[in-house]
């Protein structure tokens, strides 16, 4: 569908098939990207990038279902496998081969856990797609907002970093900004979790002396960064909440790598 307000074109698989077309890649939006207002903005920005570089893509729309990640982390393997098998049926029915996800949790689950249940796809995270586009010269940090003089720090999502060893792709987008990229004390393999993984996103934390996202604020403040770059909708929520709780909204902004690219390119 083409949207005047958001200025993006988002075809669904059903529409594509009806027109007898096959997209190059399926964009797996994820539940946060679909329903969470903050994450929806990231989803739209990923679409803007896809539209701009002219990659033919589609989303599943209402045919998409939770990957089952939070169910699996919470120990409900039944529910996880039910979700996975339903999704695999849909993906295979459309003969999907390549998937880009907007969420490290969906990425990890489809990439690593669906093969055991018969779902085999080439899966990349949107930061990897952005890296590829930069490497191919299709995406440049010019024409939009300038990040010169700004300090940016990147928060590694656990399921992208330690979970799958992806540390460089997200940083690639930040390196071309001419901003000052500062690493937190705990970064890359030593990165500190935002506190949302393992189904924690959906429950109150256990009794302790502070919340994990507040602990992460120490690292963030230490870098004196103006922008915290994120690559996961759960991290986005936790880090934004942390910044709000410490009343730092005026000084520190949390932006997804896709949002930063869209700003830099002026899309």
């Amino acid at each position: 569908m083409e949207n005047i307000k958001t200025n993006i074109v988002v075809p669904t698989m059903a529409e594509m098939v009806a027109e007898g077309k096959m997209p190059e890649i399926l964009f797996w939006v994820g539940c946060a990207g679909s329903f969470d207002e903050r994450a929806q903005r990231i989803t739209r920005d990923i679409c803007k990038i896809l539209n701009y570089v002219g990659i033919s893509f589609a989303v599943l729309g209402t045919e998409e279902n939770c990957t089952g990640d939070p169910a699996k982390r919470a120990g409900n393997e039944f529910l996880f496998q039910m979700q996975a098998m339903t999704n695999i049926q849909v993906l295979d029915a459309y003969n999907i081969k390549k998937i880009v996800t907007g969420c490290p949790h969906c990425f990890n689950t489809i990439k690593n856990e669906y093969p055991d249940l018969g779902g085999n796809y080439e899966v990349i995270h949107h930061t990897q797609l952005i890296q590829q586009l930069i490497d191919e010269g299709k995406l440049k940090a010019e024409g939009g907002e300038s990040f010169v003089g700004k300090k940016i720090t990147y928060h590694d999502p656990c399921y992208l970093g330690r979970g799958n060893g992806i540390y460089e792709a997200p940083r690639k987008a930040l390196e071309i900004l001419d901003a000052e990229l500062v690493e937190m004390k705990r970064c890359k393999i030593n990165g500190l979790c935002c506190g949302a993984g393992g189904a924690q996103m959906f429950k109150e934390p256990e009794k302790g002396n502070k919340d994990i996202n507040i602990e992460r604020m120490v690292d963030i403040k230490e870098t004196k960064a103006h922008v915290v770059a994120a690559a996961c909708p759960f991290c986005m929520t936790m880090l934004s909440d942390g910044i709000k709780l410490e009343n730092k909204q005026q000084e520190i902004e949390v932006l997804d790598i896709a949002e930063i690219m869209v700003k830099a390119k002026g899309l």
Partner: peptide, 12 residues
């Protein structure tokens, strides 16, 4: 089909 209480019809 989502961890939050949203209708799947609103997914897009």
């Amino acid at each position: 089909g989502a961890p939050w209480k949203y209708s799947n019809a609103d997914r897009l």
